[in-house]
Design a binder for these strands. Structure first.
Lengths: 132, 132
DNA sequence: ACACCTGTTTAGAACCATTATAAACTGCGA
DNA sequence: TCGCAGTTTATAATGGTTCTAAACAGGTGT
């Protein structure tokens, strides 16, 4: 029932589908990366009832807007999301298209010297591309 | 004729279309960012004959593979490319979707401490998201 | 417990950037 | 000039994502 609370507190009505998607996304030891397609399969595996693709899209976007998920900036035919919302970065293995977490402690501090007036920095994301 | 040489030297047959696309991309004072759609319009403006969309895609991908263009890792419905192939980074203004260059001197050195065995780092790209 | 309202879910269609196709064309070496 | 492999082209196909509008379901007030 913890997800019902969490959802209600952030202004999202705690529907059956949203709670079930929370369970798939957040009932895990480790955080993980996924595409909508990955998530669709995970849901099929873990949940008896069907959740429509449109709902999966809606929910993922709603969760991202609330800050429960992060989109990973990467050029791929599919959008990648991350259940790890802490500041961290990624390796991207070009050979097999796999993403690997880079903890913040794995990357030295990043100092942005340039400023754009009227704007503030929302996030700093580093993508390290790997080849053989 | 400089582009004919350049193309031939990198194993690309210097066709009329490729040379013309070179002129649109590289005959400029400053480097710039673009989507395929942007490039299509630029070509229409500067070139008399038509170049088909498929050729634009083919050429951009060929140039990227040869290292004359870089793809910018960003989540957008369209793929962004950059004629600046030096190591540098980007601001991304979330409000209006605009990209702004961050010169390497604007960003302190980035130290990646983690290693993946058998893999080497091909590139390090930083995306700084801006909000109001 | 009921009804109602609004937010949510749903299947399917629509959208649109990108890629595939296959026929016509062209740079270039023989 | 000939011939071929590499390119270009218009168009169709693909596939992830978004839209639509009808059915459904939390939640509040009665």
């Amino acid at each position: 029932m913890k997800y019902k609370e969490k959802l209600r507190n952030s202004g999202l009505r705690p529907t059956k589908q949203r709670v079930q998607i929370c369970e798939v996304l957040f009932d895990t030891e480790k955080t993980f990366h996924f595409t909508i397609n990955d998530l669709e399969r995970k849901i099929k595996d873990k949940i008896d009832n069907k959740i429509s693709l449109a709902t999966i899209y809606n929910t993922v976007h709603a969760f991202e807007k609330k800050g429960y998920l992060k989109q990973i900036p990467i050029n791929s035919n599919q959008t990648y999301f991350d259940t790890n919302i802490n500041d961290h970065h990624h390796f991207y293995d070009l050979k097999d298209g796999k993403l690997i977490d880079l903890e913040n402690s794995d990357v030295g501090p990043i100092n942005i010297k340039k400023k754009i007036n009227g704007k503030k920095i929302k996030s700093i994301e580093v993508l390290v591309k790997l080849e053989d």
